[in-house]
Design a protein around this nucleic acid. Structure first.
Lengths: 353, 353
DNA sequence: GCACGAAATCGAAACGTTTCGCTTTACAAC
DNA sequence: GTTGTAAAGCGAAACGTTTCGATTTCGTGC
């Protein structure tokens, strides 16, 4: 007879005429119970609509079966994909997911991490908003944590990310092979590993091809749609306008596309563009966008798998497991936003202006 | 001296030379403590890096400060927007969000709800995958719950949704005003309230204008990109091809756009299309899409606000609060995917074929 | 009928808090 | 000093589980 509206093990035990230890044994089948009694217990549970109190259980066992996930910006379409992958694995393993949005703010991020810790989550999945070593306190506690997408500089623990150097290289290489020489880059925040590596890949490809990287072709420091728009306007307004632009962030790419549309610059005839991240809708754009796709769902899946390994492991071999880093391959998807540049003579004219 | 690696109130109390009751009083300032002792306690907390155990606290207080959120399909871009709105309000109020993906599967949904209940979340936000009365058990317990977007038929409790009848009406009315008469609809799953209402709006507009609704123009029963693609192929292959199509679901709209592109049908010259849901990228499509936008973020915000009201309320006035339904206005955004139909004579010819 | 071991069941402590009623302390007034 | 009173501090009981050692029950062989 539940008093509060919610039945407890006591209620079940009383109704079934057994001790609460027996009820516990039936629930977790952690000890052998005679069939008749087990049956009675099960009936009582059903009759009372008993749902074990996970809070009490957690207090006793020290595990909550909850994973915290901290992401920098929910409005970036890349992250929901990652989340869904992580959620899939978590649910399958009997874990729930607490979702936190840090809003690209290190302070808020710290607060969120602190809350998650207070809630005694079994582990944390995080794409950091801060590249600093603010995560030391967690690491020192040997708290299970896996970084994904954005990885703090010099971090040696478990992490999952796209091979962003390859991504930047492939994108740039593609443009070079088409014959472009004046290739600009809109490169996000260089403090963040994905953007740093993608620019690095860009640099590598340019260097290999013996092409110079003009300072004015290298736009960095922001992540929003508007920033992409601004950078786009600036680049396209340059006397020596680039014939191709590589944009390392999908939101800024949106801004860039808008700028191109507004200036009525013909893409790809006058300027080619390549972005990072690919979505169901990318190929419905005008023109269809060439992008380097990240395996976003897999990043979520893999990161969660790594984390659950750590969570399950005992302190002894946690060390080894906590070291694993997984780098997933990106995939260049060539569509209609990239093409051969206008004829060389034209290009020289443009340079001369 | 934390034994396990995590300090407890006992440790703090010992180090500060006070009782744990005093520590509790300092933390929650629920009683007045002399400045000197309070200071000592605070120092001890800092020294031990004490983080209150929210699990134990929840067991004692009966509140977890966690809200469960169940959504039918994370890959539908509409939901991440709603989530971010809900998360914003929750975090601000000191609540965390457990995210669950039901995958459009009522069975899985029931399991998730059961898990959430076991975790003793303080309330649930849900867009149901099942229109049935499977939620009765929760309602009967007077468990705080708010439905959003999808609302079970006949449900009388708290809910937030777009005025979907108006959405369907506005979209169809827009097409009619342009001069269209043969207007088809791709209408999702009619068991789900948003789609049912949007079709209703479509019907209403058609009726008002004295236009017939042909059976073959009425495609229902699915939600995926591929379904939209199939329906698109079928509709465009009709002898009496519609001159306009209203699609009630953003994923199916993507499929429809693909079908149009593949058949090389000119939009909007040969066929106009209107969708529901608007995203940053909708206007980068070719052509730019005319859509009825939902205030998705506001839906999330409002739903969370309603829920927190219920959670905060005592059982007495919960009844009143639990009744509120909020209907938000949609907004038609006219772009380039809708235009006047081809000349009447042509239309008659097409019909005669 | 008894002793014995195995099988089944149980009681009670613990997990880390909150909270309430009780005790101690401090201080002012006489 | 004593007393009275308000302010501060404390002890211990819960919250709903798990778990382990202790106890009961049972069947078997003699």
């Amino acid at each position: 007879m539940p008093k509060n509206g919610t039945a407890t093990m006591h209620d079940v035990a009383r109704l079934a005429g057994v001790s609460i230890a027996t009820v516990s044994a039936v629930i977790n089948n952690t000890a052998v119970v005679s069939p008749t009694r087990a049956q009675k217990v099960r009936e009582a549970m059903k009759a009372l609509d008993y749902h074990a109190d996970q809070v009490a259980r957690s207090l006793k066992t020290g595990r909550t079966n909850v994973i915290g996930m901290v992401i920098p910006d929910v409005t970036n379409a890349f992250y929901p994909d990652v989340i869904s992958g992580a959620e899939e694995i978590a649910t399958r393993a009997g874990y729930s997911l607490i979702l936190c949005n840090a809003n690209e703010d290190p302070v808020q991020e710290q607060r969120l991490l602190s809350t998650l810790f207070s809630r005694r989550v079994d582990g944390v999945l995080i794409a950091c908003s801060d590249s600093s070593t603010a995560y030391d306190s967690l690491m020192r506690r040997r708290f299970p944590i896996v970084f994904f997408d954005r990885i703090p500089t010099g971090f040696r623990g478990a992490a999952v990310a796209t091979d962003n150097l390859a991504a930047g290289y492939q994108a740039t290489r593609h443009l070079i092979e088409l014959g472009h020489e004046r290739i600009a880059i809109i490169a996000g925040n260089m403090e963040l590993s994905p953007h740093a590596f993608r620019s690095e890949g860009y640099r590598k490809a340019m260097q290999e091809a013996g092409l110079p990287v003009h300072n004015e072709y290298f736009r960095i420091g922001a992540l929003k749609v508007d920033n992409g728009y601004q950078f786009g306007l600036e680049l396209l307004g340059l006397a020596a306008r680039p014939t191709a632009i590589f944009c390392t962030n999908n939101k800024m790419l949106l801004g860039l596309v808008r700028a191109i549309g507004e200036l009525k610059v013909n893409c790809p005839a006058e300027v080619s563009i390549v972005g990072v991240d690919d979505f169901t809708w990318t190929e419905n754009f005008n023109p269809k966008l060439t992008t380097v796709a990240q395996p976003s769902r897999d990043i979520g899946r893999k990161a969660m798998e790594l984390l659950l390994e750590q969570v399950g492991a005992d302190k002894e071999n946690l060390g080894a497991r906590a070291q694993r880093q997984v780098i997933l391959a990106p995939e260049l998807r060539i569509r209609n936003s990239t093409a051969r540049p206008a004829s060389p003579s034209q290009r020289l004219n443009a340079l001369a202006v």
